[in-house]
């Protein structure tokens, strides 16, 4: 069972990821709507897997990712964002994320991305 945390300021996206079918091996242990909150929740819940949006209030994904990588060294981080700005996404990834999923996404895409992320 993989412990999963969802970071997105949109409740639609948060709930959508939670509700995606076929994710029997994942349990959502926490969610957050901005980077600051994410760091706090991650510290408490130590997720194995974090999905994170880039543009969020208070602290955006780019700044939160290196801190999250520090707080949960073993966690895999998936950037989930619209493909508006490739450069930003690449910068976010190079700060410690492991994969990128383009919004909007289908269930299959999300499922495949999560499986890919936790595979070795």
């Amino acid at each position: 069972m993989k412990r999963m945390m969802i970071v997105d300021d949109s409740t639609v996206i948060r709930r959508r990821i939670e509700r995606t079918h076929g994710l029997d091996n994942y349990v959502v242990v926490g969610s957050a709507s901005d980077g600051l909150q994410a760091v706090e929740v991650a510290r408490q819940r130590t997720p194995d897997l974090i999905t994170i949006d880039l543009t969020m209030p208070n602290m955006d994904g780019i700044d939160a990712i290196p801190i999250l990588a520090e707080v949960c060294p073993g966690a895999r981080i998936l950037v989930v964002s619209a493909l508006a700005d490739k450069a930003t996404a690449i910068r976010a990834l190079s700060r410690g994320a492991h994969g990128f999923l383009c919004k909007p996404f289908t269930d299959d895409e999300l499922r495949d991305a999560l499986h890919e992320l936790v595979s070795d």
Binding site: L78, L83, K86, A87, A89, I90, L93, S94, A97, H98, G99, F100, L101, C102, A113, E116, L117
Partner: peptide
């Protein structure tokens, strides 16, 4: 970086 999943960053190819 072998930590990053190749399949998950293809769409970012600039």
């Amino acid at each position: 970086n072998h930590e990053v999943k190749e399949n998950l960053i293809g769409s970012l190819n600039p």
